[in-house]
């Protein structure tokens, strides 16, 4: 069975690449979601921005860079080191945060394959049409809900 059978959430929100991460964060907090898609003006999919990427900006560079500090317990309650970078979110664009490494699904992708890919990536996966336009995002939750419903559990 192809994933067409599952209702994935449609691209009524699609951020432009020049939007600021601060806007993206506000949108995600309002809707209670952790990921938002990024599309160009013609609706073609570019990538996904997630709350993890935004949080990573706030952490001191010495810890987030590859090979950096893996433990910050010693710094105690230095919350100001996190909030110091909140303003940076206004200066950046979501295009710089776009995750472009995610596999892409088609409407006729099999559910089994989609399930496997979802276990391998920590984000919902984009479903695109032939022209690369975003049809929606398929989440683990949506796929599991479909399976439970099909099985009549």
């Amino acid at each position: 069975m192809p994933i067409k059978a599952i209702p994935f959430y449609p691209p009524d929100i699609c951020l432009q690449p020049d939007a600021s991460p601060a806007d993206a964060l506000r949108l995600m907090l309002e809707r209670g979601i952790d990921h938002a898609p990024i599309c160009d003006r013609d609706g073609r999919f570019i990538g996904i921005i997630g709350t993890t990427a935004i949080l990573r900006v706030l952490i001191p560079v010495s810890a987030q860079a590859q090979g950096g500090l893996s433990n910050l317990r010693f710094a105690g309650d230095a919350v100001s080191l996190l909030t110091a970078h909140l303003r940076d979110l206004e200066r950046l664009t979501v295009g710089e945060f776009a995750r472009k490494d995610l596999p892409v699904l088609r409407e006729d992708s099999p559910i089994l394959e989609a399930a496997l890919l979802l276990t391998q990536h920590s984000a919902p996966l984009p479903v695109l049409d032939e022209g690369g336009r975003l049809l929606g995002l398929l989440s683990r939750r949506a796929l599991l809900a479909h399976l439970v419903q099909q099985a009549g559990l």
């Binding site: 010495s62 710094a75 080191l81």
Partner: peptide, 14 residues
């Protein structure tokens, strides 16, 4: 240096 540089950057950032 691999071990000192990250913590040095962290302290200078603080």
């Amino acid at each position: 240096v691999l071990l000192i540089v990250p913590v040095a950057l962290f302290i200078t950032e603080a």
